[in-house]
Design a protein around this nucleic acid. Structure first.
Lengths: 108, 108
DNA sequence: AGTTTGCGAAACCGAATGGTTGCGCATATA
DNA sequence: TATATGCGCAACCATTCGGTTTCGCAAACT
């Protein structure tokens, strides 16, 4: 059972859930109301998101409020960084810098 | 057959391939040499990456060079943007701004 | 011309995925 | 106390996934 953030955000419903609870905590039923799906299906997604520590939960009576652990999203941001560098290089047409990066990579 | 960039980067081998061909075009065999996998397996990954237009190919004799269509990576960057805003808000403790965003969302 | 090499495509397989249904438990409400 | 509600969990199911093996084709060597 592979469980990393990239696999977590691969599913469109899960991305929607993440966006939904990013701003405020919500219960499974409240989340399910926003999509064309059941609470149980949402519950399974929440479990996956919990397993990769992408969300937090807070019990309140018999209700459980889920919210986003937004810091974990930075992992994706960090991963993207390597490509952002290349965008900049291409944008500025710095072909010599590009070959320097290639060289550094080969030296590793 | 769902085929979007998020599903494409969900697989760790595919992420590695993407990083590998980001700087220079490579053939399937050359790519496979970098991992503990076969050319055929790489070929399947390349097909998936092609289907979501994340890579380009250029035939050269009997060899096919694959390279990254880096612009497509920006989609992930754009998606991340909504969370980056929240990072900044939390960092600056701008709780009033946060509730404004919530309000704007509710008005939509 | 004959052989080797690089490749995609198809068939197949076990494992994982996303969903449903049904259950039991705890908390609320009457 | 009896009933309704919110929830996680397990069982089940069809589909997809990632990989291997095999094949056929085209380009490159000998």
């Amino acid at each position: 059972m592979r469980r990393d953030i990239f696999q977590a955000i691969a599913d469109p419903t899960r991305r929607a859930i993440i966006a939904l609870i990013a701003l405020q905590a919500m219960t499974p039923n409240a989340i399910a109301d926003n999509f064309n799906t059941t609470r149980q299906a949402v519950s399974k997604h929440l479990r996956i998101l919990t397993e990769c520590e992408l969300i937090k939960q807070e019990q309140q009576g018999r209700e459980i409020y889920y919210s986003l652990a937004i810091d974990r999203m930075k992992e994706v941001d960090i991963w993207l960084d390597q490509f952002r560098k290349i965008w900049e290089i291409q944008f500025h047409q710095l072909d010599d810098v590009l070959s320097t990066i290639r060289q550094q990579k080969n030296e590793k």
